[in-house]
Structure formats: C-alpha cells, structure tokens
Computed example of a mutant assay.
Amino acid sequence: MPRTGRPITPLVLSDEERATLLRWSRRAKSAQVVAMRAKIILVCAEGASNTDVATALGVHLSTVGKWRRRFLKERLDGLIDEQRPGRPASIALDRIEEVVVATLEQTPRNATHWSRRSMADRSGLSKSTVGRIWREFGLKPHRADTFKLSTDPQFIEKVVDVVGLYHHPPERAVVLCVDEKSQIQALDRSQPVLPMMPGMPERRTHDYHRNGITSLFAAFNIADGSVISELHRQHRATEFKKFLVTIDKTVPAELDVHLICDNYGTHNTPDIRAWLARHPRFHVHFTPTGSSWINQVVRHASRMSAATLTEGGSTVVEGIVPGPVREDRPRLGVRRG
C-alpha cells in the first residue's frame, strides 16, 4: 500500500479573516512578504495540498507548511514577523538616562555648558557615544536662544493696531516705521584694504582709527520700501524732533503720516507731544513694550548691518548711510487706497 503521508489539518477561514487576507494579498509594492503569506493561506483554505500550493505560487514546499502551521496556531497574528532581538545594547539604559539628566539639569564646574569631552569625563563614556546620545534626544548644550515676553498690559491692542496698519494702511496716508540705530562707529583702517584676488580673500589690517560715533534716524515706508534718514551725533528728543521736521518736509502735505515707533523715552517727551499737537496730520502708534520685532524698520536696520557694517571697512558710515534729507530730495511714492 503506498504511503499517504501525514494528514493535513483542514484550514477554515472566517469572513473577517478572508477579507483581511485578500487585502494583504493585493499589496502592490509594500510588504510583499506578508502578501505572499496571505496568498498561501487563501489557497490552502480552498482545500489544496501543500504540494499543489507550492507549485501554484512558485514557493518551496517547506514554506507552505511553515505558514500553514503558523496560521493554524496564531491565526492572522502568526503571519506578521516579530521584532528580531538583534545585537544587545552595548550601553545600559540607566547610563543613557544619567547622561540626559546631567545634560538637562546640571552644569560643569568650570564652564557654562557641557561639551562632549567634559560629559565623557563625567560619565565614563566615549565622546562619540555622548554625541550619539545627544543627537538621539535632540540635545545641543552649546546653543542658546533668547526670548522676550512683553509685560505690556495693552499688548494685544497695540499688536492689532500696528499689524492692522501693515495690512490695511489708511487711504491718502503714508505709514512709516521709525527708529534710531545708535552707537554706529565710524572707523578707518590703519592701512588701505587689499582687494580680493583669485584664491585670496579681501584683507584688512586688524587695527583701526576711531572717528567717533553717530546715530542713524530712519523712517521706513512700508508701501514702497523707501527710507527717510538722517545722521546725528546723539539720539535725544532734540534730534528726534529735527527728524520729525524732516519727515514733515519730505512727505507731501496732503497726506496723513502714521508713525510706528517703540517706547523709547525721547519719543514721548512733553516737547515731542507739543510738536505733534501742532501737526495734526501726524499719528503715532507705539509698539508693545519689549516688542521691537514688530517694527519693520528694525528688520531694515538688521539687514543693513549684515550687509554693510559687519566687515568694518574704511569710512564705514559715509559709504553706506545717506546724509540728511535735503529740500530737493525726490518725494516718497505713496500707496493710495
């Protein structure tokens, strides 16, 4: 009598299992291994033998037997691979926790922040290991950001007022962001600057001659980006009043003037308030305390510093800041409506 082999345990699927296996088997690109296992179980559920299933799907006979047994024992969960143990961790979790906690809650004795070397000396780990732990947890002890929380009780009202002017400026009016950039040093290098050449950067001497300091008064037009500017030795209320007179002469008389400025003391003295009262077309809008970032002229001054003042070249101020506004200077372009 020929051998019939070991009898095959019938494989019966529920409607829910069949629907799930059909969905898995139709995966076009991802998880193709799981898709093939689902196809094996679906064909087995039709009553086919392991040999017929292996032939129909082009897989090894032992593969069919393995996943048939796994499904009968664990059902759908048996078709999903478990996480492989892999190489055991070389660093205990408590040591990783020690590095993270020390980085967040402590500082080294003779420094303001941890370095990889100092943390390695403290923890007994290598510098590369400390670096990997910091990268994993997103820690950068060498970096520090600054922030400022305004304590102005009218913070929301002032922000809405200023931002409203930016988005919806009044008709027949010009909106100017006003501020002073003080303590600008006028420096001359002790020797002429050597120009840049192929393969060689521009070179300048390390020493310089001081020619005093100056203050830049600027009014930035949010409509067209033009700037009214003046240079003064100081930035007192007296100089600010002179700058207001310059603005008054520059802006066409038929337009109102909305000034956005910060809470610096020289902007709100009795003399300034009296001048504004005599010029009713001027309207002053103060930014919230500690919120200079909302004033567009601050961004303009920052861009100017990065582009022209950082290198500290010869005749710094004269080269990049226009002189006082003259009567014959072209009038500002104004956004209407």
Rank of each mutant, 00 (worst) to 15 (best):
F155K: 10
E180R: 10
Q234R: 02
F217I: 07
G164L: 11
R204A: 15
R236W: 05
H209K: 15
A144Y: 01
Q183Y: 05
R210P: 08
L187A: 13
E136M: 03
T246I: 11
R233Y: 12
A223N: 09
H168R: 15
P192V: 06
V174A: 02
T214R: 09
Q154K: 03
Y208H: 15
V174P: 01
D179R: 01
G212S: 10
P192Y: 05
T205Y: 02
A237D: 10
T238G: 01
Q234H: 06
V130N: 02
N211K: 12
R189F: 11
G199D: 04
H209E: 14
R233Q: 07
E171P: 09
I133Y: 02
E157S: 12
L165Y: 02
A219K: 00
I184N: 08
S215R: 07
R236A: 03
F220C: 03
L194K: 10
I222H: 02
H235V: 01
R210N: 14
Q183K: 13
L194W: 09
H206I: 01
D224K: 08
H168G: 04
A144L: 09
V174L: 11
L149N: 01
G225N: 10
M200F: 03
Q154E: 13
L187H: 13
H235E: 00
P201E: 10
H142T: 12
I228M: 01
P169T: 09
S190N: 08
G199L: 13
P170V: 09
V227G: 09
A223H: 15
H206N: 03
K140H: 14
V162E: 08
S215D: 02
P198R: 14
D207F: 04
R203N: 04
F137R: 15
P195N: 08
N211Q: 15
T146I: 02
H206T: 05
V178G: 04
F217V: 07
E157C: 01
